[in-house]
Amino acid sequence: MKIDKDTVDKLSTLAKLEFENEAKDGIVNDLSRIITFIEKLNELDTEGVEPLIYMSDEVNVMRDDEVRVEITQDQALKNAPEKDSDYFRVHKVIDN
């Protein structure tokens, strides 16, 4: 399948990525090429085959629902690019 620039725009909005100029041409070409490659799968008859979703043999692994402090607020904020004493900081979300 040939991927066009419109499709790349839609996908990049969903993926929160941006492709401009040469990068956009590049991703259009790469995706077209890779998607053509994966379309090989259409040759296989999968009528009536159940999709394989879970790889683990474990079923319903349960634990007691106990309250535990896994990380403190200080620790949670430790790697934040922008923060104040209590919160992660971002640009203003709601207009006045």
Binding site: I3, T7, V8, K10, L11, S12, L14, A15, L17, F19, I27, D30, L31, I34, I35, I38, L41, N42, L44, T46, V49, E50, P51, L52, I53
Partner: peptide, 29 residues
């Protein structure tokens, strides 16, 4: 970025069954 875009494509509305579900079935085979 290439892989995120491809993954977004195979999961997106209209292509999910043709690509993602299809591959899960092939995985079973």
């Amino acid at each position: 970025k290439r892989r995120i875009m491809l993954g977004t494509f195979v999961l997106s509305a209209g292509y999910y069954d043709a690509y993602y579900s299809k591959a899960q079935k092939v995985r079973r085979i």
